[in-house]
Design a protein around this nucleic acid. Structure first.
Lengths: 206, 206
DNA sequence: CTTGCTATTGACAGAGTGACAACAACTTGT
DNA sequence: ACAAGTTGTTGTCACTCTGTCAATAGCAAG
């Protein structure tokens, strides 16, 4: 008789299992709203016992926060290819790179950041705020305006505000198809150029 | 002995009861995220039996959608006071009016629209999209550019994108306090002026 | 006071979540 | 090769929350 000791389940490294569950959670949370996704669904999707989710993430909410954190984290720009030209040129490059990032994440990004729900959630708020801050900081550096130290706070603030338009424009492009990439590129480039080149100096005199 | 026939509960008109429950729901959903608010909480807040919520709104989700719809609906601008001056003047007026609206709703507005959660929710998406569309349409008319019919779709699209910056800037102002109203006013005015006066014509040639 | 309408309640069944002790896959030492 | 230890994983239990529905009670009309 065969001594096939086929194990009923495989024992993975904690990090691997964590990633696997996280992947499934990202997929499901991207498809329907929070309350419509049960931990049972996620567990089934991952081929795992439901309790394991609590073991790794504490609670459903904990898992959700991890998903949010993972999704909103924007990769850091590779500044080695940034041109040394005028402000307009560097802005154009930065915007192009931003659109590449959005394009790469595509539907997932939109599915995730597209919906603004109702409900004050301090923790989610915090994660989002940090991501926006990093993105803004990153953009400012890429454009090469890091030297304007004294008014750095205000600069980053208006860049974060600009980030709101980036998201909205991205949605128009990706989900609604009401604007082409070229159009979004043009709009964001001109707007950011005006913002940094014209409006920002005006702001400092206020 | 007192024949006080003190009624245990009052019988209200359906519309009144609906409003009352909706008010409480708005308050609670504004304080904590969806999953943290139970229908029991809402019922207790309204001094009402839990089942009544289902009677009026069908489900917890139904009530939530009503709350969202109520909160994101922006009042229509009173165009009787719009100046007839240059584009810049009309834009300035419109932005000022927008900031008045934001200021009036203040914390509630921010608490409600501030958090962008994760989770694709078609119904919420639809409500938000409609609200954005109305706001954009309203803004376009107030600024007096309703005559550019042929490219109306693109115009509204970029104005909606601009709406993203309005929200983000409003958050910087109201919640984070990183920008003053005057600064927000300046930024949005210049950006919108450039968007409508410069970028939009460029866009049409694309 | 009685009757009828219906807004409102209270209880019940089903589903989902978190905690925890027992189990089994894998590793290490002999 | 085997035994013992480690710990990733499971399955169950108690609790909370939601939606349904028949029964109740406030209120107006006759």
């Amino acid at each position: 008789m065969s001594t096939e000791t086929e194990p009923r389940w495989r024992r993975l490294e904690p990090d691997q299992r964590r990633e696997q569950i996280l992947d499934c959670a990202i997929r499901l949370f991207g498809e329907r709203p929070y309350a419509e996704v049960s931990t049972t669904d996620i567990a089934r999707e991952a081929g795992v016992a439901r309790g394991l989710i609590n073991h790794y993430f504490g609670s459903k909410r904990g898992l959700y926060l991890e998903v949010v954190r993972r999704m909103v984290t924007v990769p850091v720009a590779d500044r080695s290819a940034v041109p040394d030209g005028s402000l307009a040129e560097r802005v154009e490059f930065s915007v192009d790179w931003l659109l590449d990032v959005i394009s790469a994440r595509g539907k997932t990004w939109v599915a995730v950041l597209g919906t603004e729900g109702v409900g004050n959630d301090p923790e989610v708020e915090r994660i989002l705020a940090e991501a926006d801050e990093m993105a803004a900081e990153n953009l400012v550096r890429t454009v090469g305006m890091r030297d304007v130290e004294p008014a750095g706070a205000e600069l980053r603030a208006i860049v974060r505000a600009f980030g709101g338009m980036v998201k909205a424009a991205g949605r128009e492009w990706i989900t609604h198809g009401t604007l082409t990439r070229e159009q979004v590129q043009l709009v964001l480039t001109e707007q950011l150029t005006a913002l940094l080149g014209e409006t920002f100096p005006h702001l400092q005199r206020l």
